[in-house]
């Protein structure tokens, strides 16, 4: 059972209070984009074995989206941050690097 903290309302709760929303920081490619870009945005996923950035929604709380940094091998949650960002904030990146020195950084 994951414990997540919603950065929007500050509540810490079990995963049943939240809804998972898949890989975070995708750049949307819509009409007019080429096939490769669209396929990569719409279907292909990193499916990381290790440090993963993913969207969650505080479904049974404030209802807002946020992003969690989590290890898919140990289920450790490194931290959460608001969804209004295109890449992980430096604070989270440092925290992960301290715990996973071998991590190659966000790509």
């Amino acid at each position: 059972m994951l414990l997540l903290t919603c950065p929007c309302c500050g509540v810490t709760a079990e995963e049943t209070e939240f809804a998972p929303g898949g890989e975070a920081h995708l750049t949307r490619h819509g009409p007019g984009s080429d096939d490769d870009a669209f396929e990569s945005y719409m279907f292909n996923r990193k499916n990381v074995m290790g440090v993963h950035f993913e969207r969650w929604r505080h479904a049974y709380g404030c209802g807002k989206w946020f992003i969690a940094a989590r290890c898919t091998v140990t289920l450790e949650v490194f931290g959460t941050y608001p969804a209004q960002t295109t890449e992980p904030p430096p604070g989270i990146v440092e925290k992960i690097k301290a715990k996973r020195p071998e991590w190659e950084g966000y790509k």
Partner: peptide
């Protein structure tokens, strides 16, 4: 519903 490699579930 979330990515996982632990062979354990919720």
């Amino acid at each position: 519903g979330y990515n996982n490699y632990t062979q354990r579930g919720s």
